[in-house]
């Protein structure tokens, strides 16, 4: 849920700010930073509900990826705010699945460090 919320907001903001014809690299970096800020800000209220660590990393990753992809896309074609929000949500869902997979790979007992 956190990934969807942060991804949607980051995607919506990126589609709102970035316009057609912007330099793609600049747009990517700007929207990525914007997404991470969104994730960082939402970390505080959402972290209270679901736990700080379990929210911070998914939230920042979702914000970063959604902002980056929607920001780059917005330089190539005009995205409506609804599309930006939707693409952001899809990116958030992708991040959620990625973190679930990575977590399953990493978690568990390691003997002797």
């Amino acid at each position: 849920m956190v990934c969807l919320v942060v991804g949607s907001i980051a995607g919506w903001l990126s589609s709102l700010i970035v316009g057609i014809g912007w330099n793609m690299i600049f747009a990517m970096i700007l929207a990525m930073l914007l997404g991470m800020i969104v994730g960082g800000l939402l970390f505080f209220p959402l972290g209270m509900l679901f736990g700080a660590m379990e929210v911070m990393l998914p939230a920042m990753l979702s914000g970063m990826v959604s902002g980056m992809l929607v920001g780059m896309w917005s330089t190539m074609e005009s995205l409506t705010q609804l599309l930006g929000l939707g693409y952001g949500a899809v990116c958030g869902m992708g991040c959620l699945i990625s973190i679930w997979v990575i977590n399953n790979q990493l978690r568990g007992i390691q003997s002797n460090g």
């Binding site: 660590m53 379990e54 911070m56 990393l57 973190i99 990575i102 977590n103 990493l106 978690r107 568990g108 007992i109 390691q110 003997s111 002797n112 460090g113």
Partner: peptide
């Protein structure tokens, strides 16, 4: 701080690590 390398610090302090159990990613 969110970025401490506590496992390395435990080893450097002279402890022998018997077990590390990752609960969330390699963070918790």
């Amino acid at each position: 701080d969110m970025n401490r390398n506590t496992v390395k610090n435990v080893e450097e302090a002279g402890f022998e690590i018997n077990e590390i159990n990752h609960l969330f990613l390699d963070v918790v």
